[in-house]
Design a protein around this nucleic acid. Sequence first.
DNA 1: ATGGTCGGCAACCGA
Length: 256
Amino acid sequence: MKIATFNANSLRSRLPIILKWMKENCPDVLCVQETKVQDVDFPADAFAETGYNFVFRGQKSYNGVAIFSRSEITETEFGLDSEPTDVARMIKAKIDGVTIINTYIPQGHSPESEKFTYKLKWFERLGKYFDSRFHPTEPVIWLGDLNIAPEARDVHDPIRLEGNVCFHPDVKKALQKIMDWGFVDMFRAHCDEPGQYTFWDYRVVNGVKRNIGWRLDHIMATKPLAKNCSACYIDKTPRLAEKPSDHTFLIAEFDG
DNA sequence: ATGGTCGGCAACCGA
């Protein structure tokens, strides 16, 4: 199974990039975040032509998630199982016997804000969700824009960025707690290099060229899947496109 | 070398 994640920063705006990428890369599963489109306006016709199955949930202006799959998508559920469920931030589905949880985790605005408290709470609730629903011996993939750079090598300036909402000790701890439950970081299982990013802020001049980025998008897998992961890599093409997105594709390949 | 640029949507918010 070849599975990919991409924060689109507007699905409609990034439609050409996504369709082209799907055609050229033939992923079995593509998970998208920040679709920024209400369900009634979802470009279903364009995706129907690809032959992929898909499920989605969005809202006006913000958030929104989608899963595209060559195989049948079953057991689809939106959001967390406690209030607020945030249906436009999470899809759980089963594809080819694998449970896939596609999340767009709150960014958190600033460490002093209520949004940051909400972000920390989100990790806590997600951890409980995994614990109550699944077992780490089952095939589960958790992926998406997790809005956390786990380690110093995952940001361009760890000294200056210490305490930023996406590089904050409390968020790192919250992520680690979920990882300890039974997830393995697929990218780090295959690459030790620093400076491997999936996000570059639009506001940084020549940020991509200077590689002033963050590794915020992740593909995590439980151990039975992790041992069959043959590759995990970043594809920067959407960030270099004519109408670039601020995030890139992250891809993981699993044998069998 | 961050004090900026996107997208949505129709004034600013979110990232």
